[in-house]
């Protein structure tokens, strides 16, 4: 049997005596959407940052398709086919939408060291195709610095998809978007993921988004995994209700188990 797309084993990290992440293990298969939820400060961001090499773990291992990537810097993890989006969007505001994607394509092709030739004229077709894919085709020539927040999130997705990743790490992909936009954004991501059988790991506070789109959910609390399972099982899990979900007064009516928009 081939190794899973992403395998995390016994990952731990402490800051000044506080255990941000403790002994976290899970796997993720190609084509799967895995949600990581939990209260703020539960260690979700730290966990993400360890997966793409921004933070070095104290202990544990991260393997991508069986290859150990623990301790590699983000740029090397990226070259192994990991796309990432950030909680607060990170794009290049001084460039147009198209140029943002072109830079990602140039970087992926290893052509960033060329000292001559016009970068704005390379990979135009590929860049435009990606912009179209995320619904930004009409805005390809606009400066990223003046985009609305939702559009920035889309652009980030295009950039993350530029180099045909095998795994997407999305930290709160819909934070700061209007509810309708949220659903649309996740639907788009889910479609892309299933079409190209990408693995997607995402954190999210919007329970409606989580329960509608995730195949599986991991719940983190104080750095530990306290529950793992299908969205339906997680909703009914008493430990999760006690620490995280509460009585369900503050989120809407997610569809019942199994009724996900899953073709």
């Amino acid at each position: 049997m081939s190794p899973p797309l992403l395998a995390v084993e016994h990952l731990s990290k402490a800051y000044g005596g506080v255990h941000a992440v403790q002994d976290v293990s899970f796997t993720l298969a190609a084509g799967e959407l895995l949600a990581m939820i939990g209260p703020n400060g539960a260690g979700k961001s730290t966990c993400f940052n360890m997966l793409n090499g921004q933070v070095a773990p104290d202990a544990g291992q991260v393997a991508i398709s069986g290859r150990d990537v623990t301790g590699l810097p983000p740029r090397q993890v990226a070259r192994l086919g990991i796309g990432r989006t950030f909680q607060i969007t990170a794009t290049f505001p001084s460039m147009t939408v198209r140029e943002n994607v072109q830079v990602a394509l140039l970087a992926g092709a290893g052509r960033m060291n060329r000292l001559a030739g016009h970068a704005g004229a390379s990979f135009v077709a590929e860049a435009d195709e990606l912009c179209r894919l995320v619904g930004m085709g009409h805005a390809a020539g606009r400066p990223a610095g003046e985009l609305a927040y939702g559009d920035l999130k889309r652009l980030e997705l295009a950039v993350a998809l530029a180099n045909k990743p095998v795994l997407l790490l999305m930290d709160e992909p819909t934070a700061g978007m209007a509810p309708a936009e949220r659903v649309e954004m996740m639907r788009l991501t889910a479609d892309i993921a299933r079409e190209s059988s990408l693995g997607v790991l995402f954190t999210e506070h919007d329970m409606d988004v989580v329960f509608e789109h995730a195949d599986r959910v991991i719940v983190l609390d104080r750095g530990r995994i306290i529950a793992e399972g299908t969205p339906a099982a997680i909703r009914e899990n008493p430990a999760v209700r006690a620490t995280y979900l509460g009585e369900g007064l503050t989120f809407g009516h997610a569809p019942a188990a199994g009724a996900r928009a899953h073709a």
């Binding site: 209260p39 703020n40 509460g246 989120f251």
Partner: peptide
């Protein structure tokens, strides 16, 4: 005040 908080804390 509720942005980014666990539903339980929101209560």
């Amino acid at each position: 005040p509720s942005e980014g908080l666990a539903p339980k804390i929101v209560e």
